[in-house]
């Protein structure tokens, strides 16, 4: 490995979490911290050692969050926030999921949202039979300027067409309704 002074430090240390659905265990017990990274080099070492998103089985999640924030609504740094949610069609798992998830990770570790990057808590990938989902979580759903800036940049980075709409939902709304019913607070 190169000496530490030649590594490229990230602005934040990020923790990768893995969730594997085991109904015999409590939700929190199925959530495992995989590793933490704080350099560009560490990030790629991690990425090259884990399964691609498209190879995970249904019910599994990946989450990449800033160190110190747990990937759940209840964390004090998430609970007033929300998420930009992209729901994928089933066939996109094999055509686009890996590209979209990697792009999401690069947006996070590269601090792509200018000064609003500090609003970002992390990102979550859900592998589901009905259709996979990718979301970027931010810490304050009422911060309209920050949330909209993040949404616009994120949509552009994903290469989504102008016709594709992605929505932002406050966790407080998602927690009290099923996902499909939670209303969009913002759209881009």
């Amino acid at each position: 490995a190169p000496p530490a002074e030649q590594l490229h430090p990230l602005q934040n240390r990020w923790a990768l979490w893995f969730f594997k659905n085991d109904r015999s265990r409590a939700w929190h017990d199925n959530l495992q911290l995989v590793t933490k990274v704080d350099t560009v080099e560490d990030f790629w070492a991690m990425y090259s050692h884990i399964q691609l998103a498209s190879k995970l089985s249904s019910g599994c999640d990946y989450a990449l969050f800033k160190d110190g924030i747990e990937p759940m609504w209840e964390d004090s740094r998430n609970k007033r926030g929300g998420r930009w949610l992209m729901s994928l069609a089933k066939q996109q798992r094999h055509s686009e999921l890996d590209r979209l998830w990697l792009e999401t990770l690069l947006c996070l570790i590269g601090e792509s949202f200018e000064e609003h990057s500090r609003e970002v808590c992390g990102a979550v990938l859900n592998i589901r039979t009905k259709g996979d989902k990718i979301a970027v979580w931010t810490r304050e759903a009422e911060n309209q300027t920050g949330v909209l800036h993040i949404g616009r940049v994120y949509k552009e980075r994903l290469g989504l067409s102008a016709k594709t709409i992605i929505g932002y939902q406050a966790h407080a709304d998602t927690a009290t309704k099923s996902n499909s019913l939670a209303k969009n607070k913002f759209v881009v």
Partner: peptide, 20 residues
């Protein structure tokens, strides 16, 4: 200063030998 990296810069490191 803030450590911001664009996607091309980050992708350049993907297959560097030190990362494998």
């Amino acid at each position: 200063g803030k450590k911001q990296y664009d996607r091309e810069f980050l992708l350049d490191f993907q297959f560097m030998p030190a990362c494998i």
